[in-house]
């Protein structure tokens, strides 16, 4: 028996909206500790990793580990029927479920929707991601980072991110010209302006802006985002989801061959 009830169903809707341009189908692994999901984009350049802890759910029960193969497109269609204020419950009684039940309830419990989504069996190729001690970590407003990526992608497809003790510089070079945005440490009490740099080692890495713009669809999940980098490592972009878990995106760098 598996049942997970999320009080703020809108979080689940936002997660699916954040990943639907990146991955087509995913395996959600349910265990006693919660839900986890890992999937790569079709080009194997980016990877998304979701972890939702059982104690972030209103109700959570998972008698034995199960894998739920979902089409993101079909999941999206079902979730469109859930109101932003609804609770969302996922449920299945079977051990090898062929479908997953969804219940959407409004606050007054006066409207209850029930859907059943057919499951897919997906060969799960998951990658082992070691816990990395990143040498450059940037915490900043997710809206601000999203804006920087959008603005720079009109000049070039790739951005070079260079960190130093007191600032991070986003540089682009394209046919029309070049540009850079330098953001300094800023302990402002205004969320949108605050920038926290923890730079043990400066890095200079280049990434495709197309993927960063896709990752930034998660901006509605958290007002802050962290960029985690080490030389010759994929960038890890993390959106923490209050009291529930985190949505992480990994992006392989572009390097001069």
């Amino acid at each position: 028996m598996f049942e997970a009830k999320l009080q703020q169903g809108v979080i689940f809707k936002k997660i699916v909206d954040a990943i639907k341009d990146l991955v087509k189908s995913v395996n959600i692994d349910a265990s006693t500790s919660g839900l986890s999901m890992q999937a790569m984009d079709s080009a194997h350049v980016a990877l998304v990793s979701l972890k939702l802890n059982e104690n972030g759910f209103k109700d959570y029960r998972c008698d034995r580990p199960i894998t739920l193969g979902l089409s993101i497109e079909n999941l999206s269609k079902i979730l469109k029927c859930a109101g932003n204020d609804d609770t969302i419950t996922l449920q299945t009684d079977e051990e090898e479920p062929s479908s997953l039940k969804f219940f959407f309830e409004n606050q007054q419990a006066s409207k209850i929707s029930e859907f059943s989504l057919n499951l897919m069996s997906l060969d799960s190729e998951s990658l082992g991601i070691p816990d990395t001690d990143y040498s450059s970590v940037i915490q900043m407003s997710s809206a601000e980072f999203s804006r920087i990526c959008k603005e720079l992608s009109s000049i070039s497809e790739t951005v070079e991110i260079e960190t130093s003790k007191e600032s991070v510089k986003f540089s682009v070079q394209g046919d029309i010209g070049a540009g850079s945005i330098t953001v300094k440490n800023n302990q402002s009490d205004k969320d949108v302006d605050r920038v926290d740099l923890q730079i043990d080692q400066p890095v200079k890495l280049t990434f495709a802006l197309r993927y960063l713009n896709m990752f930034n669809k998660a901006v509605s999940l958290s007002s802050t985002v962290s960029l985690n980098m080490s030389e010759e490592n994929p960038l890890m972009v993390e959106y923490k989801i209050d009291d529930l878990g985190s949505l992480r995106f990994y992006l392989a760098p572009k390097i001069s061959d």
């Binding site: 790569m40 080009a43 194997h44 350049v45 980016a46 990877l47 190729e125 998951s126 990658l127 082992g128 991601i129 070691p130 790739t158 280049t206 495709a208 490592n233 994929p234 990994y250 992006l251 392989a252 760098p253 572009k254 390097i255 001069s256 061959d257």
Partner: peptide, 14 residues
């Protein structure tokens, strides 16, 4: 121009 690496060249398949 820089070549795009694959994520799989950084992490082992489990």
């Amino acid at each position: 121009d820089k070549a795009q690496k694959e994520i799989k060249s950084y992490y082992e398949s489990e």
